[in-house]
């Protein structure tokens, strides 16, 4: 039993399922007016894969693995920086009367 509960994959699955529920709850409340910023903002959040990409570029990694990791860092950073900035640019334009 103890071994089961500390199994990272199992914990990961718990987290996955609970987060999906949280996501549904939070995101259904976003009004249609903000659907484009929601999409680009969520998009930037999916760039979280940058954390995994960073761990793929270590000095002692084989060169090909490192090159792939480097490409992953570039791709993820485009996603993160571009996504958050463009969302901010859009939200800046939404004005009241």
């Amino acid at each position: 039993m103890e071994a089961l509960i500390t199994n990272p994959i199992l914990i990961g699955l718990y987290i996955l399922i609970l987060s999906i529920f949280v996501g549904f709850e939070v995101i259904t409340k976003v009004p249609p007016t903000l659907h484009t910023p929601l999409m680009s903002g969520a998009n930037a959040i999916s760039g979280i894969t940058i954390l995994a990409a960073l761990t793929c570029v270590r000095t002692d990694d084989p060169t090909t693995a490192k090159i792939l990791g480097f490409a992953a860092v570039v791709f993820a950073m485009i996603n993160v920086v571009g996504g958050f900035l463009v969302t901010d640019r859009m939200l800046h334009m939404f004005k009241r009367k």
Binding site: P8, I9, I11, G12, I15, L16, S19, I20, V22, G23, F24, V26, I27, L38, M39, A42, N43, I45, S46, G47, I48, T49, L51, A52, T55, N79
Partner: peptide, 28 residues
């Protein structure tokens, strides 16, 4: 793109990737 981040989270065993990825998955 969120679900892919989730899968990557399982590969490197990073829970933040799983959480953020599934939030985006749900949103999409």
């Amino acid at each position: 793109s969120g679900l892919a981040a989730c899968a990557a989270g399982f590969v490197v065993e990073n829970n933040l990737l799983i959480i953020a990825g599934s939030l985006v998955g749900a949103s999409g």
